[in-house]
Design a protein around this nucleic acid. Structure first.
Lengths: 315, 315
DNA sequence: CCGAGATAGTTGACTCGGTCAATAGTTGAC
DNA sequence: GTCAACTATTGACCGAGTCAACTATCTCGG
């Protein structure tokens, strides 16, 4: 363990992955070898086919290619009739690139071969492993700072979700606030009860997914009997969470809004939630959404001294 | 969805990862660019430093390098005094390669730079994300068929484990046997209760970890009160599971043995377990370990018609 | 023990992917 | 109008990697 909390074993694991994947890319390149294009050419073709009116400079930037090399490469494509280059109307320096019919026809088999190869790889895996692989890759990308392609979508609960959410919350609160195993157990228990007692007329789940990976969630459940006045009119917002690396795009707000909306739709008159004072970001979101703090009491849980808070919102 | 159950979105996700990581390796190469060595040379040096008496051919094989190219590269290293080549005693064709002192001295700064770079990358991440990244990378490697470096080790429960195990079991049984969400909820409930009521004198957890990733687990808990005769003398083996991709190395047997051993050490006289007849591999392991089937009853759970089985072992 | 065939490594000839630096044209800020 | 910054091009260059032919050694069947 180093001073900054980075473990040597972690470093070794990342480097091992790098070595592994470098080799993997070498193998991948062999697949292309039979075609008329090199890996770099194939990458350029891919970008040309998928981007909207790209210019040479953004291509070079994004693929990490030398401008001179790229220029020649594009010239060759043009000579082969795969590509047209027109100077951009709004900037005479730039050229708008576009594949011709022939270019698309040349790219299609490459694209298809790649898709088939990847498909065959996936088909070899048991189906539970397929989802795991896709999720793991999405996670690696996001954690290494690759911006996700699309916006986050909110979807319903699926197998694997409640375990995943338990896992992430357990890890997150353990490392950020020092919570012990009992916190994770509490999350597991809440989610188990949520599924066990699930009634779509009274409860709901919103899972935020981005690029094939779960990046946040929130749950709506009926308040426990005996908690507060007229419990059947009170809903409970539970387990709001957003992945650290997915923060800053307003996902917490979106999830909260969805939950409030869901509570209204199910006829609840009030929405309550329980949280801890250490969770600053979450508190801000609740306050913004109109919740008000109605109770605050110190408690010892999860191996920590905390101040529990109950918030309430009139719907 | 294609005929073989492979989803187009999955294929797209894998290809996106490939593009992303190809670019990532380009960036990595830039870091080396300042040093006297190319990426390939650095890879060869790394293997020379970490392998035991390698030969040129295995190096070429494992790194995917051309024999001719590698030969010249090694020759250059030898001329620079970084490397010695001796024909192997047992086979006159082969050469045993070894870095000289100078070779190790040349490699050390490279190695250190790489370690520092990776360390800096990790240090930028929140600590919960670090573990997630390492785990995700280990998973990608294992799922793509990279054999894990070391043997699996059995360790104790840590934050994140029970969620992870719930997640994997939920996904696994959903995809293999069509179990619905309630199965995952049951796992979550069992694990939550395990942690809540945890007493080291009566319960235990064995988590199999390999290359930074959880690949299996088993739990020992006291049998529920009222179940069978003299419940305090009966332990219960619960939630045995092994990742599909980690099967075939006797991990299930090892976990079962550890659990039995743990039950003996805690003074239990009998060990029971509940399973379903569809789980063939698990049943074989139980039978081999000496468990005998004592009860069998059909039930409808998890959206499926199943036959539940109780097995028992005298300790 | 011999010879066929495989394997480990070497070498020459070559290609191609990529770098570097100089240059020309274009744009926007002042 | 000038100048700095940017886009793209071109010539000169090189090192990484490929391919095929060749030597030396080992293995195995007869």
């Amino acid at each position: 363990m180093r001073a900054d909390g980075v473990d040597e074993a972690m470093i070794a694991a990342l480097r091992a992955f790098g070595r592994f994947y470098t080799r993997q890319i070498g193998l991948l390149e062999e697949g292309l070898h039979r075609s008329a294009f090199s890996l770099t050419e194939a990458r350029v073709l891919y970008e040309l086919a998928h981007r909207d009116r790209p210019t040479a400079s953004v291509l070079g930037q994004d693929l990490g290619l030398d401008a001179g090399y790229l220029s020649r490469l594009l010239k060759r494509f043009e000579e082969q009739g795969l590509l047209t280059r027109r100077t951009a109307a709004e900037d005479g320096r730039r050229q708008v690139l576009a594949l011709t019919q022939a270019g698309q026809a040349a790219f299609a088999p490459l694209d298809e071969a790649s898709r088939a190869e990847v498909g065959a790889l996936l088909a070899r895996l048991p189906s539970a492993d397929r989802a795991a692989l896709v999720g793991a890759m999405a996670r690696v990308r996001r954690l290494l700072g690759d911006p996700p392609e699309g916006p986050a979508i909110l979807r319903d609960l699926r197998p694997g979700d409640i375990g995943w959410i338990t896992h992430r919350q357990g890890l997150l609160y353990a490392s950020e606030y020092g919570f012990d195993l009992t916190f994770e157990a509490l999350v597991a228990e809440i989610l188990a009860a949520f599924v066990r007692d699930f009634d779509p007329a009274r409860a709901g789940a919103w899972i935020a997914e981005q690029g094939g990976e779960v990046v946040g969630s929130v749950f709506l459940a009926p308040a426990c009997a005996g908690a507060g006045p007229a419990p059947e009119t009170v809903g409970k917002l539970r387990l709001l969470y957003v992945e650290p690396s997915a923060r800053g795009q307003g996902l917490g707000r979106r999830l909260t809004a969805a939950c409030i909306e869901g509570a209204r739709a199910r006829g609840y008159r009030q929405l309550s939630l329980w949280t801890n004072d250490v969770l600053g970001t979450a508190r801000r979101i609740y306050a913004e959404a109109g919740f008000r703090l109605v109770e605050s009491a110190p408690h010892r849980s999860f191996g920590q001294d905390l101040v529990g808070e109950t918030w309430m919102l009139d719907l």
